[in-house]
């Protein structure tokens, strides 16, 4: 029964089905691609501490209440390299490279957020 049902598809039907699936794959790839990030904003205690270009390679130590949080920027990506926070969540967030991604070191009141060409769809985020 199953094979009989598939036999009602003609040659053109199969070609068109393959083309449709290809179109779907291409559109999926295109539409789920996040816009790339260009800059990283570093916040300390709610205030903008620094804004760096992601293409510039540098390491920045941001002083906080517990000590220094080290932000590393390299090849269009950014990460928290070191942080005095006990659970190290922001360090475990790893490298960020898409606009809108963020890593937050709550105990040390420091966070980084990547921004892209487009305006953010929201005004601000509160933690």
């Amino acid at each position: 029964m199953g094979t009989e049902l598939w036999r009602c598809l003609r040659v053109g039907d199969w070609c068109l089905l393959a083309l449709s699936v290809l179109l779907w794959a291409v559109l999926t790839h295109w539409s789920w691609q996040q816009p790339g990030a260009t800059r990283v904003r570093i916040y300390q205690d709610g205030q903008l501490y620094a804004e760096l270009d992601l293409l510039a390679q540098r390491t920045l130590a941001v002083p906080g209440p517990l000590g220094a949080t080290v932000v590393e920027v390299r090849q269009g990506k950014a990460r928290i390299a070191q942080d005095p926070s006990p659970r190290q969540y922001c360090v475990k967030a790893g490298w960020l490279q898409q606009a809108g991604q963020a890593a937050i070191c709550l105990p040390n009141r420091t966070s980084i957020e990547l921004t892209g060409q487009q305006a953010r769809p929201y005004d601000s985020l509160s933690y």
Binding site: C8, L9, G12, D13, L16, L17, S20
Partner: peptide, 14 residues
């Protein structure tokens, strides 16, 4: 579309 190669499945997909 030529019916010989394209059935209703093609029309439905399009």
């Amino acid at each position: 579309l030529p019916r010989r190669w394209f059935g209703l499945v093609s029309l439905s997909l399009l």
